[in-house]
Design a protein around this nucleic acid. Sequence first.
DNA 1: TTTTATCTTGTTTATTTGGTCAGGAATTTT
DNA 2: AAAATTCCTGACCAAATAAACAAGATAAAA
Lengths: 206, 206
Amino acid sequence: MTEKKQGKIRIHSQEKILLAAQDEFITNGYKGATVQSIADLAGLPKANVLYYFKNKENIYHAVLEQTLDMWDQGIGDIVYSDGPKVAIEKFVSSKVQMSFKNPKASKIYAMEIIQGAQHLKEFTRTYLRKWVREKSKIFQQWIDEERMLNVDPVNLIFLIWSTTQHYADFDNQILTVMNRADYEEEDIEHVTQFLTQFILRGLEIK
Amino acid sequence: MTEKKQGKIRIHSQEKILLAAQDEFITNGYKGATVQSIADLAGLPKANVLYYFKNKENIYHAVLEQTLDMWDQGIGDIVYSDGPKVAIEKFVSSKVQMSFKNPKASKIYAMEIIQGAQHLKEFTRTYLRKWVREKSKIFQQWIDEERMLNVDPVNLIFLIWSTTQHYADFDNQILTVMNRADYEEEDIEHVTQFLTQFILRGLEIK
DNA sequence: TTTTATCTTGTTTATTTGGTCAGGAATTTT
DNA sequence: AAAATTCCTGACCAAATAAACAAGATAAAA
């Protein structure tokens, strides 16, 4: 296993390529994306792009990997000791944060799933399924202890995912509908507030 | 304006083509889709497909139009006279119904928006923006009359959209995570129940 | 039946695309 | 400074692709 040494130039170019690739894959999908277009966006000759990643599939894998890493890191964990209120506050706010700060990662992921998760089947079947099982169990404990309302934990997780990611995946629609050019810093806080309050309220025991 | 007469064969072939095209556009995106592939899926020679729709763009437009029609028809309207409870019940249940019965339409739409709404800019800017304005106003009235909690109506609409559509757009993920092969009839009822109860609870005045 | 319009499809064309390669430039190692 | 390694890129190629076309088959209208 002879690893290529990673000089500064190499790393710098790779980053440019991955950024460009992310945009290209979002706008045109995996099959519609062209290496030429990625090269143009990165300001490099096509042959150079293919020097770093030997083919299109490789570029895409690298982009996906980046995306999953981000999900892994950025996500606030749900732990039993926090209790339902704090756990949900943490989780929602970290997901909203991610959606606003890095909508592109969310979009890549969304497209991949919509199109049939052809490159992510394994991730969903193993990692994600396990994650949902574990977190559901925690919610169920809180329910059993009557610290939150008895709702289906799995659907609750889906609700949190969908509402938070929506601001990333559909940013175009949201901004157009609200007649705005871009999100602003205060939107993050506003949406976080709205969602946490709404969700916590939906789980309160009267 | 000489319209081509629409014989039975024509309509039948056109339908087959549109169904095939929908699948192809979902799996490969607009740019990645090929006319050949659509033809194969439809069981027709490529030249025949291009006889009915003179080019790829035309096929896509037809698919999009179908999608928007469905949105227009299938959506339960929100009317003031219903009051918040009934209105939300109607709206959520019609959207869930649509998501489960026709996930493909939802996916086509979602992909369009994620990719920058290149073919739907006008729809979002005019129709959708107006729709949100009108419905927000109705929610605001109910809020002013203290018939529901004071939450931001626009974000409330986004919340309903995202949670309901999630079951269509991310069906792959949901099914995999839940270790199931397909949705079943009772899932519709279950999800509708979950969402309406959760949302209404989040809007109740204590 | 004759004529006209609609439908069908094999073939062809021009362009785009993923990927290779050879050879040279720049950098690092010895 | 010599050698080795890494980096860069124009030119090239085979395959795929959107679309046009021509010529025949079928059905409808006269």
